[in-house]
Computed example of a mutant assay.
Amino acid sequence: MDLKVLSQLIAVALTIGLTLLIGWVADKALQRIAARHPETTVWPMLRRCRIPLQFVVCLGLLLANAPLAQLFKTYAADVRQGLLLALIASVGWLVNRVLAAVLSAVFARYREVADDPSRVQRVRTQVNLLRRATGALVGLITVGAMLLTFPEMRALGASLLASAGVIGIVAGIAAQNTLGNFFSGLVIAFGDLVRIGDTVVVEQQQGTVEEITLAYLVVRLWDQRRLVVPVSYFVSRPFENWTRADPHTTGSILLHLDHTTPVPELREEFRKLLVGSKEWDGRDWGLVVFDSTPSTIVVRATMTARNPDDAFTLKCRAREELLAWIRDKHPGALPRVRTGQ
């Protein structure tokens, strides 16, 4: 084997070995820093950046010394171009991982010190959308930098600058829905309209917000179906958000009963039912005669719960047990159809 080729192969092997060593040293350093500062979560999360860091170091050293390009003399320019493109992509990958780790650490720290669940959900939604936005921006910049490494693209870019205004107008018209969803996602994130975990009513369907992106929002319905809605819907149309300010909610049921119903006894039975229920949060309750008709009275029972799911369960239980109590203790209080003689 040619001595020059052997030296170049040794250079490549040393480069790979040095890359692995740098990655190992960086990982051990992050482990020690994380052990000294357990209250800071950013250091363990930065360990996820080890692989893209090694790619950046390895490709940077190979591009600086160019041992691979020297091994393939005929294709030296193509090898350098490939190494440069890979280096730019690796830098974008590394920056994306670092930003994601920092944002995740910020949210984890905020979740530990915050005492308001609604604020935690708000920050969680903002961090998720901010992570997606920064990831898209880093990806766009990375692709742009890769394209600029080609001389033909630089010349093309200079010629396109003259018509950038027209192209911008045409692109804006063509992508107005996409841009509208993008800005709507930012409004939702920082305007606190909807958060992950909120209970909402969309198109007369109740569900829990499961995922929010810059383009769409996923609502998990009660039967485990997923309703995918464009984020622009929540900016341009009215909708119900039952947990935006406070997850506590009030539920009510209506009972149609006979005029002979002993309302005070029914009210006491309802109170006992709530006291023995784990879904009732103890804040408020009530039972009143809400309306009357020539044949029945309408009794409304209200109760508070910690969240809409508990309220739904409590309403079903209260309706079932109150009707069972009336059937067993006062069957004459059930509504009857009176016919004249």
Rank of each mutant, 00 (worst) to 15 (best):
Leu14Ala: 14
Val299Tyr: 06
Val299Ala: 04
Val298Gln: 14
Phe270Ser: 11
Arg300Glu: 13
Glu39Cys: 00
Arg283Gly: 04
Thr208Gly: 06
Ala114Ile: 03
Ile16Glu: 04
Met45Gln: 15
Pro247Arg: 15
Leu322Ala: 03
Val42Asp: 08
Leu83Asn: 08
Leu6Ala: 13
Ser295Val: 13
Ile22Tyr: 04
Lys272Phe: 08
Val288Gln: 12
Val218Pro: 03
Arg306Gly: 13
Ser295Met: 12
Val229Met: 12
Ile88Gln: 03
Val102Phe: 10
Leu161Tyr: 00
Arg122His: 11
Val231Met: 08
Thr249Met: 08
Leu148His: 04
Leu53Asp: 14
Val263Ala: 10
Phe107Ala: 06
Gly17Trp: 01
Leu287His: 06
Ile167Thr: 09
Gly139Val: 05
Glu269Ser: 13
Glu321Met: 08
Gln54Cys: 06
Pro264Asp: 06
Glu112Phe: 03
Trp24Thr: 07
Ile253Lys: 07
Gly172Cys: 01
Leu274Cys: 09
Arg80Asp: 05
Ala100Asn: 08
Leu83Pro: 02
Ala318Asp: 01
Gln206Lys: 14
Trp43His: 15
Glu265Ser: 15
Val263Lys: 02
Lys278Thr: 15
Phe72Trp: 15
Gly165Lys: 00
Leu99Asn: 01
Arg317Asn: 09
Thr304Val: 05
Lys73Thr: 12
Leu266Gly: 03
Phe150Ala: 11
Gln31Leu: 13
Val228Asp: 14
Ala175Ser: 13
Ile22Gln: 02
Glu210Asp: 15
Ala76Phe: 02
Leu84Ser: 15
Lys278Ile: 14
Gln206Cys: 04
Val5Leu: 04
Arg306Leu: 07
Thr199Ile: 10
Ile51Met: 09
Val120Pro: 09
Leu71Gly: 08
Asn241Thr: 05
Val209Thr: 14
Leu20Gln: 09
Leu71Gln: 10
Gln204His: 14
Ser104Gly: 12
Gln224Leu: 13
Arg47Met: 12
Ala64Ile: 05
Val218Tyr: 11
Ser252Thr: 09
Glu268Ser: 11
Ser159Gly: 00
Ile188Gly: 07
Cys58Pro: 04
Ala301Trp: 07
Ala100Gly: 04
Leu334Asn: 05
Gly185Pro: 07
Ser295Leu: 11
Thr149Cys: 11
Asn177Leu: 04
Leu68Asn: 07
Ala13Gln: 03
Val275Asn: 12
Ala145Asp: 01
Trp285Ile: 00
Ser7Glu: 08
Leu137Pro: 05
Val57Glu: 11
His37Ile: 02
Arg283Thr: 15
Arg132Ile: 08
Ser159Ile: 00
Ser159Leu: 01
Arg267Glu: 12
Asp223Leu: 10
Leu179Asp: 07
Lys315Trp: 00
Val231Tyr: 11
Thr15Tyr: 00
Met303Thr: 05
His248Trp: 05
Val200Phe: 11
Arg317His: 12
Lys315Thr: 14
